[in-house]
Design a protein around this nucleic acid. Sequence first.
DNA 1: CTAAAACTGCAAACGCCGTTCGCGGTTTCG
DNA 2: CGAAACCGCGAACGGCGTTTGCAGTTTTAG
Lengths: 190, 190
Amino acid sequence: MAAAIAVADADGIGAVSMRAVAAALHTGAGSLYRYLSSRDDLLDLMVDQAAGELRPYPEAGDDWLDTMLLLARRQLDLYRRHPWLVAVLPRPTAPGPQSLAWFDHCLAVLRPVPAATTTKFEAIAMMIGVTSLFARQETAAPPVGFTGIDLAAYPNLAAAITDPSPSAPRDLFATTVRSVLRGLLVDDAG
Amino acid sequence: MAAAIAVADADGIGAVSMRAVAAALHTGAGSLYRYLSSRDDLLDLMVDQAAGELRPYPEAGDDWLDTMLLLARRQLDLYRRHPWLVAVLPRPTAPGPQSLAWFDHCLAVLRPVPAATTTKFEAIAMMIGVTSLFARQETAAPPVGFTGIDLAAYPNLAAAITDPSPSAPRDLFATTVRSVLRGLLVDDAG
DNA sequence: CTAAAACTGCAAACGCCGTTCGCGGTTTCG
DNA sequence: CGAAACCGCGAACGGCGTTTGCAGTTTTAG
């Protein structure tokens, strides 16, 4: 499993083939099936192993929103360390113990929030999703320039990219996460 | 290409193999390479073809936020019609003409918003991302019950799922999209 | 009209993939 | 010590994306 994660970190999730992992272990591909039922099984184990890196969890502070943002940042860092995670996560699979523990901790942080359980679940799911979106965008190699695009057909886009109006630098991730959590969990801001 | 979309709608993106598409066209797999350079090429064409279904675009109304939400709903409906889209989109690929046209329309809707161009780009990207998150969640077959999970190890989760506090039904998608767009595009709400 | 050029469909083949299976060799346990 | 369990291994199966050479057809040029 550690070998599989090493391969994924180095060459991407596409390089995590049974033969490649087995080769890293100096053994044959078929031998892995003594311990795994399938490749999906291996991926599940890799995900939960990576989720374990989120420990130790930061303590809950005074402001639950700040704490949640800190949790989100930790997860974003995890995605940066293991870019293959964002590609592997969106499979319909049961969460492992480490993932459940992290989810449990999120619920603990949200304890002082007066919202329904269902709402909290949705909010956490959204926070995870938004974090994965940012990780994916960062991973995508070059911020696609508009080379080779006929701008004549897209007037608004043409006008936009020639607009030199500067934007004040800000923490886009923090802004988005806060907006989502506040929008879902705080009544008057819905 | 229409054949490929038909296969994907019926049996998922995994069933879109060169041989399957060729079989639907009563031809051989290799023959497709007379018109496509690779399988990724086919997927790109499928995506842009699907993006064409977003036309005609709804006219911009008085409230740009309402209009953007309507655009997001149209896109969510598209994802519902073609669930394979959410699995195919997150590849690093250049957007096709239909996708660009839709993006251009979004910029037109955001014209009255006093924000930097970069900010608008980020906001649109986030809207697309959040929409895909919802589509993915809907597609994921059964809302995973907590069967077979040892709740003893996760106290907060155990307490949460036994909590019968009802939540007022609300439009989660609208709430989230509005929160994100407002958080990114409206100054005082950051 | 004819000959050359371009295009098209097709089957076979290559190398990769996940997975299964049966074989000997090794370890563990009664 | 013998039996049972476990282990690693190579071969094999079917499927995948893709390449390639060969016929047949269509278009173009002389």
